[in-house]
């Protein structure tokens, strides 16, 4: 333990992080997760911290178009990736159809899981378009990934909502998926 002091010094790296089409030159502590970099360094607080361990989905963002939990993603590994957060879903001032559908279906209450639900839904719809199965698809022996409500429920189960807005979330996503 005599070298503890040395070991406690943060290790930093310079990198460029691309978020919602904007490149941010930053110096990161190697320990920083994407979630903390977004929230604490770039003031992009849309992605939420609900558990910090990949167990709730509130921090979901898209990395190169794929949904991931940003709380388990080290920022330092993302130098050549494109990140999309909830702040980047709209087309200029026009909200993404999912954002509009969430408001109309009241698919949110406290709103804290909502950015993660939205990013997850965007990623999920892309997965379905690519023909990816879920366990509902695979259990049924089907290769057709038609997004009925059971499929949406299973595919969105990585995003917990404690307010219990699930039925409205599913309705909102189903409407956009159609």
């Amino acid at each position: 333990m005599n070298d503890d002091e040395d070991l406690s010094a943060p290790v930093t790296m310079e990198m460029r992080l691309s978020v919602n089409g904007i490149g941010y030159p930053i110096t990161v502590d190697t320990r920083e997760t994407l979630l903390d970099t977004l929230r604490e360094r770039l003031d992009l607080t849309g992605a939420k911290k609900g558990c910090d361990h990949g167990q709730c989905g509130a921090c979901t963002v898209l990395v190169d178009g794929r949904r991931v939990t940003s709380c388990l993603t080290l920022t330092v590994a993302l130098d050549d990736r494109e990140i999309t957060t909830v702040e980047g879903l709209a087309d200029g001032s026009v909200p993404h159809p999912l954002q509009t559908a969430f408001v109309r279906h009241d698919a949110l209450q406290c709103g804290y899981c909502t950015p993660g639900q939205l990013c997850s839904a965007v990623g999920m719809l892309a997965e379905a378009r690519a023909g990816w199965p879920s366990i509902v698809t695979a259990d049924g022996g089907s290769v057709d990934a038609r997004l009925d409500e059971a499929e949406i429920r299973e595919r969105m189960s990585g995003n917990l909502c404690r307010c219990g807005a699930y039925v409205n979330i599913v309705a909102a996503i189903a409407e956009v998926a159609r």
């Binding site: 939420k48 954002q99 408001v103 949110l108 709103g111």
Partner: peptide, 15 residues
């Protein structure tokens, strides 16, 4: 509709 709905779905609502 929720009056703060748009703020919440765009990530602008601050907690």
């Amino acid at each position: 509709d929720r009056v703060e709905g748009l703020e919440k779905v765009t990530g602008r609502a601050r907690y």
